[in-house]
């Protein structure tokens, strides 16, 4: 099975409820974006560093997650410094603010189990029910997707190998056409399997 980004440690940050962490993240984001000047990002940076220590996450793993972002940040800073009225100072503040936001979000991801995170989103779907969102269906689709990813990674690898044997490994068409056709076939099989096991898309759904 596919592994999430969750990293288990015995820390208070890991024990905080997922919903609280997500809510705090949203609050911190709004706060940071609304707070002008140096102090906000600096306070945020101090908070993030403290939380990272508290969560006992290995520095290396956090850095690996951030490496591609670091490059984007660098370009981002460069563009800010060169093209905005605020010059490099303003650019530094904006870049720092961003780095703090991204680190906070990464922290939540690394310290929260996929299952707990999914549960929070299911509660969010339940709130969205009046808008036409069906929480049970969303939850089933999410679970199905997570289960199907390893299967499809396998399919992609199989097709790639088959096409390499035919000498067309560089053709996008030779990969995607069989993949999509296979997926459509899988959809029929999975639908039958679900319904054969008594799944009824209209059943158990509260009508409002």
């Amino acid at each position: 099975m596919i592994l999430g980004l969750y990293l288990h440690r015995d820390s208070p940050v890991h024990r905080w409820p997922a919903g609280a962490k997500l809510a705090a993240l949203v609050a911190a984001t709004v706060g940071l974006l609304a707070w002008p000047g140096w102090t906000g990002p600096l306070a945020g940076a101090a908070l993030v560093l403290w939380l990272l220590r508290l969560a006992r996450l290995p520095v290396k793993t956090v850095l690996t997650q951030l490496r591609p972002l670091f490059l984007i940040m660098l370009i981002f800073f460069g563009v800010q410094a060169l093209f905005t009225d605020g010059g490099w100072r303003e650019g530094l503040v904006t870049t720092l603010r961003f780095a703090v936001l991204v680190l906070l979000a990464t922290l939540v991801t690394l310290t929260t189990r996929i299952g707990d995170m999914t549960a929070v989103f299911e509660r969010v779907f339940a709130v969205l029910r009046p808008l036409g969102v069906d929480p049970e269906k969303m939850a089933l689709m999410l679970a199905l997707t997570i289960r199907l990813i390893p299967l499809l990674v396998g399919q992609v690898q199989d097709i790639r190998m088959a096409q390499r044997a035919r000498g067309v490994e560089r053709s996008v068409l030779a990969l995607l056409v069989p993949l999509v056709v296979k997926v459509l076939g899988l959809a029929d099989a999975l639908t039958e399997a679900l319904e054969a096991r008594g799944y009824d898309p209209t059943g158990g759904v509260r009508k409002e």
Binding site: I2, G132, V133, D134, K137, L140, M141, L144, T145, L148, I149, L151, L152, V153, Q155, V156, Q157, R160, L179, V180, V183, L184, L186, A187, D188, L190, T191, L194, E195, Y199, P201, V205, K207
Partner: peptide, 26 residues
């Protein structure tokens, strides 16, 4: 969304997984 049938749900899950698989394979 209340009119989603089983096949539609399965198709959505499958295509989401396809996009994920395309990101995971080199």
């Amino acid at each position: 969304m209340s009119s989603l049938d089983t096949r539609a749900m399965v198709l959505c899950a499958l295509f989401a997984a396809v996009v994920a698989a395309l990101g995971v394979v080199p």
